[in-house]
Amino acid sequence: MKRIGVVGIVIEDITHAKEVNMILHEYADIIVGRMGIPYKEKNLSVISIIVDGTSDEISALTGKLGRINGVSVKSALTKA
């Protein structure tokens, strides 16, 4: 069953931004939209993505992102 949700990503170590983007590209088929904001004053980036996929697909995406040092990930999904 597919679910819709939002995934928030905070990249505190900008050197890992390329790795984050590679993972997002890998899951492009479940990403509906994306907004990224570089916060130069704090030397970090914030990315918000809208996803439409199965729980397993979304969990795999957030799991891979969460294993990157200097990257924090949170998600909120529809219940049904």
Rank of each mutant, 00 (worst) to 15 (best):
I58S: 05
G66M: 06
S59V: 06
V6W: 07
V73W: 10
L61D: 02
G8A: 10
A28R: 15
G70Y: 03
S48H: 08
S59W: 11
N21L: 13
S72Y: 08
N43D: 02
I68H: 01
L61C: 11
V73P: 06
I68N: 00
I50T: 11
I47G: 00
H16V: 05
G36L: 08
A28V: 12
T62K: 09
K42A: 07
S59L: 15
Y27F: 15
D56G: 12
I9S: 00
S75F: 04
H16C: 02
I37A: 01
S45A: 08
K40W: 08
I4T: 07
S59I: 05
M35V: 12
A17H: 00
E26V: 04
N43T: 05
K64G: 01
A17R: 05
A28E: 09
N69Y: 02
I4N: 14
V6D: 01
N69E: 02
I30C: 09
G53R: 13
S75T: 10
D13G: 01
I50W: 10
K40R: 15
L24W: 09
G63S: 03
I31T: 05
S55P: 00
N21I: 07
I14M: 03
V73L: 12
G8V: 03
V51M: 12
A76L: 15
S75Q: 15
D52K: 14
N69R: 10
V71I: 11
V20D: 03
V71F: 08
T15D: 10
L24A: 11
L44Q: 06
H16P: 00
S55W: 05
I9E: 01
I68C: 01
T54R: 11
M35A: 07
V51R: 10
D29E: 12
I68V: 02
E12C: 05
V73G: 01
D29K: 14
I49R: 11
E12G: 09
N69M: 02
I47S: 05
R34C: 07
T62S: 14
K64T: 05
D29R: 14
T62H: 06
K74N: 05
D56A: 13
V32H: 06
S72W: 06
S48V: 12
L65P: 03
S45W: 00
I47R: 03
R3A: 03
Y39P: 00
T15R: 11
N69W: 03
L61V: 12
A76Q: 11
T15K: 13
K74W: 10
G66T: 03
L65I: 07
D56F: 09
T62N: 06
K40H: 10
D13K: 13
R3D: 01
V20K: 11
G53A: 14
L65V: 03
S55K: 13
V10N: 04
R67D: 00
T15W: 09
M22A: 14
V6R: 11
N69K: 14
K64Y: 09
Y39D: 07
A76V: 12
K40N: 08
A60F: 04
V7D: 01
G53E: 13
N43Q: 14
D29S: 15
V32E: 13
